[in-house]
Amino acid sequence: MNGPHDMGGMHNLGPIPIEENEPVFHSEWEAKVFAMSFATFGNYFPVDETRHASERMPPGKYLSSRYYERWLYALELLLTEHDLLTQSEIEERMAQLAQADTPSS
């Protein structure tokens, strides 16, 4: 696929973001996205299918997202394509969790 992921030789993508003493994960959600994806490797999806799924992110989105946002996109895409999860289930659960987090008046 001639997508934005195939970026060898592109210009103007900015300076290299060198971060001193970088943590392995920058937040809990990054760690969870990584580990959930890892737990599907081989058992649910060949690793190359996961790589391809992140490449299928629309180009504008691909170029404006962070690394683990692309992983999350790939995970959701494959889970929904293989009928393991639906977008409406995710939305519903998000609403439930948000409500549970809000202190009742």
Partner: peptide, 15 residues
């Protein structure tokens, strides 16, 4: 981040 964190939590609990 808060939106993504919530989304990830939802997916995790469903899975």
């Amino acid at each position: 981040d808060a939106d993504i964190a919530l989304r990830v939590k939802a997916i995790e609990s469903l899975l």
